[in-house]
Amino acid sequence: MTVTLQDVAALAGVSIKTVSNVVRDYKHVRPSTRERVQAAIDELGYAPHSIARRLATGRTGMVAFALPAIEAPYFAELAALVSTEADGFDYRLLIEQTAGGLDDERAVLRGREQGLVDGLIFQPTVLDAAAIEQFRGSTPLVLLGEIAAPPTVDHVMVDNIAAARAATFHLLQSGRTRIAFLGRSLSDDHVTAGLRVDGYRSALEDLGAYRSDELLIPMTQFGAFAAEAAVIDALEAGVDFDGLVCFDDLSGIGAMKALARSGRVVPDDVGVVGWDDILMAQFTTPALTTIRPDKSALTRTAFRMLRDRMDGSADPGRHELVGFDLVVRGSTAS
């Protein structure tokens, strides 16, 4: 038999309105009353009908996470963490992939899911702050990643310049003298790559290390296959390096394969640092040294901000940095 609000109210000894307030998470309910109603809900197994709950609360019980590429290990790991956060607050998660496309990113902001979700966590790759402000709809929004955010929008990110400096310092301090960067974008619209190159250059300048544009190894695409091809091309062109900072872990994995193909030994001949600390970075041979963003803090902070917005906060946009670690493994051992 279907359990109704009336059944819960009768068991808890309260009015139907009070049960409705508890189900809607209305703030002004006495804790003792809330506990009594929740106990009745649990005992009877009451589950509010999703359509009825939406009509009563104006909420769908769903949030969306829009990301560039769900097949990328880093974003898959982020999606799992966002899902865990959503589950903890009894929300269901809708995943939307943009493939880093301008039209798809605009569609996400314009409210393609308008009416289906109560809030949106979004990692754009091509839209700038002005476009985000222009195209955003009314759905509560929190941004992840390195794209600059408008002052009205909440934003969570890692300090990519500081992290790239740490990776480059590590290679220099381990005795490397010619450090290359793998993953330079040939266009100016890849903000993340640009920030990481800035951090890499800053570290070289601070320590007076060798600098040359030939050590900026470009990639027209990202991923292990593209990285392998880019490193092979650089080596065949005579680019000489004994350390390599890679755009991400997949690039590091592809780079290590290219180095092995060319007879270079990691770490004896070339030290390699990746980025993201995806699970498979621990299982390469040798295991990959990498920048580890605090992904748990990233998703936890984003969901906290989103809940504030969904609860009606109209405060100015908040911009928060989460931490990172350099995880040293065999690919940079002295």
Rank of each mutant, 00 (worst) to 15 (best):
R261G: 03
E71G: 15
G263I: 07
M1G: 05
V156A: 04
V153G: 01
L195F: 09
G263F: 06
R92A: 15
P140S: 12
R110E: 14
F283K: 06
L216R: 10
T220G: 06
L141T: 02
F222E: 00
G175C: 09
G175E: 07
P48A: 15
H170A: 10
L171M: 12
L172Q: 04
D90E: 15
Q97G: 09
V126D: 12
G243Y: 02
I70K: 00
G13P: 03
P267D: 00
Q134K: 14
T139A: 01
F65Y: 12
A287E: 09
K257V: 13
P48D: 13
T168Y: 04
N160E: 12
I41A: 10
D277S: 13
R261M: 14
E146F: 07
R329F: 04
T4A: 04
A12C: 07
A255D: 04
L298P: 08
G330L: 01
A302Y: 01
E71D: 15
R178H: 13
V322A: 08
A234Q: 01
K257M: 08
G252Y: 10
A226R: 00
S313H: 12
I253K: 00
T60W: 10
A9D: 02
A56F: 02
L279A: 15
H49W: 05
A287M: 04
T220W: 01
E236H: 11
L298E: 06
T152Y: 06
P316A: 10
H155F: 11
A107F: 08
A163N: 06
A72M: 07
P316Q: 09
G88F: 05
G13N: 01
L93Q: 01
M1E: 05
R178A: 12
A333F: 11
S296L: 14
R53C: 01
L259K: 02
A302C: 01
V82Y: 09
V265D: 03
V231W: 00
V239S: 07
L67G: 00
E35F: 03
V266W: 01
A76T: 11
A302P: 00
F222G: 02
R53L: 00
G243S: 01
N160Q: 13
L127Y: 08
T332L: 00
G263E: 04
A79I: 08
A203Q: 02
D128Q: 08
A40L: 05
A255Q: 02
A163Y: 04
R184D: 04
D308C: 10
R54Y: 05
P140I: 15
G101N: 15
E35I: 13
L109M: 11
P140Y: 05
A224H: 02
L195A: 11
N160D: 15
R201N: 10
D294S: 13
I121Y: 04
S212E: 08
R329E: 02
L182Y: 07
Y46M: 05
L171D: 04
R318F: 10
D242N: 11
M62T: 14
L216C: 05
